[in-house]
Design a protein around this nucleic acid. Structure first.
Lengths: 346, 346
DNA sequence: CCTCCCGTTTAAAGCGCTTTAAGAGATGTT
DNA sequence: AACATCTCTTAAAGCGCTTTAAACGGGAGG
């Protein structure tokens, strides 16, 4: 057996105990120790307790890299995450929780200016992730398909046709539809949708909006927007420059809605008295008591759970054909919507 | 040599190419291939090109777990991150960028309700992280000390005495001091500090405030706050209930400032005309054009760089004694501060 | 008393890469 | 021609764990 400590420059450095040390202390083989520590049936009660005691005494913790290498399965799920987007970060957190529940570990890696999503995915695969979950990725479908040939891929919160990879998303068209329904119910007849611009999520929300206003026969207009606060703020300023404000605005997401709210507030336009505002995502931001934004829930926890589920089905061989899970969104009515000040005639 | 593909249920599954495959394709030993791929001097030009060509042809990528296990050094830095806090997330991103620049990789792991910071740190150490960077941790000093006996630890953005671990932070007292200086310069004489409550960062900012107002001989009062938007919002409501508003408010951080701004706006209190507001952190939020918050910069990029630097000094044996790096903060003057409406007599 | 079987234990062979020390040629020296 | 010196290459021994297949010990059954 190798020494467990080495003296460097006269300083005694305690080495991390290895399985071998535990086995020796317990008077059994490393094979038995390994079995006990992983709670595999086989070893006798006596062996179990001796190994457990030894491990405890030595403060043993298995070396994850060694385990991963030796094991057939790593039970690692890779998740690239754009940290500066609160919704994606929240989704990532939920994914980690869901994975944990199923006995899997999540390897997170930040998407940064110096390492874009494809690069991060490569790094995750190099770490032996068994599958990759992409949170609202902006990659073109062809790239997603290519990626899916290298490992099971689940695309979350993005509307794209499953093709080698699975998709878990919320029906955005229906979501915006509910938002419109709610506004029309309240009496609104002139509604503007500040869209998501080029963002991947924009299209569905836009068509969902157009369909809904057509269905209701109300005046619905789309204004160019984007996915961050500044886009909503710019749209709000554009609206303020017009002769008359709409009675309600539906933003492409919560961040844009926050931008709208802010500019309206500064301009003395009261929400919801003068204009109603609806967001999309139901992120932490929207839930803040002082924002109290009416918004459409993306069901982050549920999407995360289903995404992890989809990945596991593939990993566990229960399924090989791609699936698309489309969750029903639901409108969360809070304080930024109310009947229009002077209900117009239908 | 083992087969590179296996037939399972009649489906041909291409296995990831191994170093052995590359070496065979190039007609050299795995040792040479390894050297070439890691760009270690030694192999001849001819060997180099053949190995590189073979690797390229096979689409070879080194298995990270195997490399980590075999290498003495992993060059991995562990970073537990509370994803739902934008400032910490930003710090994490900067750390990843800085680490990358130094040839290190960052292993991120989310702190969630089901796995708290200590648990996450354990997981990171199990992955063989060589050092751990804690971003504005709320752990008691004793826990930090204990942790530091297991691996080099760098505490970032928290004022705590280095003790076995290194500390990289910004001088918060001075930061708030600059904020007060700025307000006094503008003519403010009645300033309120909405503090950070129990948060670890609160104490310094509070004392910095008190010292500064005493120094200037102006009226300075501290109001109980917290570290999230709701705390700022609550404080703003409390201020509105008082007979007279202060002319300026300094929040404990940007999130709290955002809460203040929002409630003020809703109440028709104009910022900065009626009251000036200053935040702390200079996160993305503060920089948003429509928020345009005057705030104190935490120098996220610089703190990250110095933190990574501190970790590397230890890892590379250049230093063993703990250090404390205290950066000078600087006030970022934006649109939420202006002279008070009716400057009061000094 | 021998064989068979079963519950336990373990020796040993990996996992895919790195690294060390020795080997093989080629070149130079006396 | 013998030997020292380089440069380049590689066999082989790990890294710390898992896993397989074989070994073992002790009844039960004949």
């Amino acid at each position: 057996m190798r020494p467990t400590s080495t003296a460097v420059k006269g300083v005694e450095v305690q080495r991390r105990p290895r399985l071998e040390d535990v086995a020796a202390a317990a008077g059994v083989s490393t094979a038995s120790a390994s079995l006990v520590l992983r709670d595999v049936p086989g070893p006798s009660a006596r062996t179990r307790e001796r190994v457990l005691a030894a491990a405890e005494r030595l403060g043993y913790r298995a070396d994850r890299t060694a385990s991963l290498l030796a094991r057939r399965r790593t039970r690692l799920l890779g998740v690239p995450v754009l940290l500066r987007d609160a919704f994606r970060a929240e989704l990532a957190e939920e994914v980690q929780v869901a994975a944990h529940r199923h006995g899997y570990t999540v390897a997170l890696s930040a998407i940064t200016p110096v390492s874009d999503e494809p690069r991060v995915v490569e790094a995750l695969l190099d770490m032996r992730c068994e599958a990759v979950l992409l949170l609202a990725p902006e990659l073109p479908p062809a790239d997603l398909v290519a990626l899916a040939t290298r490992a099971p891929v689940v695309v979350v919160a993005r509307h794209v046709a499953p093709d080698g990879f699975d998709v878990v998303r919320v029906a955005d068209e229906a979501g915006v539809g509910e938002a419109v329904d709610h506004l029309v119910d309240l009496g609104h007849r002139r509604i503007v949708h500040v869209d998501g611009g080029e963002a991947a999520m924009a299209a569905d929300r836009r068509t969902g909006f157009l369909e809904a206003v057509r269905r209701h026969g109300v005046d619905g207009r789309v204004l160019r927007g984007g996915s961050v606060e500044a886009a909503g703020a710019a749209a709000a300023r554009a609206l303020l420059d017009e002769p008359e404000l709409p009675t309600a605005v539906i933003a492409a997401n919560d961040r844009s809605a926050i931008g709208l709210l802010d500019v309206f507030l500064r301009a003395g336009v009261r929400v919801p008295q003068d204009v109603s505002v609806i967001g999309y995502d139901d992120g932490e931001l929207a839930r803040l008591s002082h924002i109290d934004l009416t918004t459409v829930s993306q069901e982050a926890a549920e999407q995360a759970e289903r995404a992890v589920g989809a990945a596991l089905e593939r990993l566990e061989g229960a399924r090989t054909d791609p699936v698309e899970v489309v969750l029903k969104p639901h409108l969360v009515i809070r304080g930024t919507t109310a009947p229009p000040r002077s209900p117009e005639a239908g």
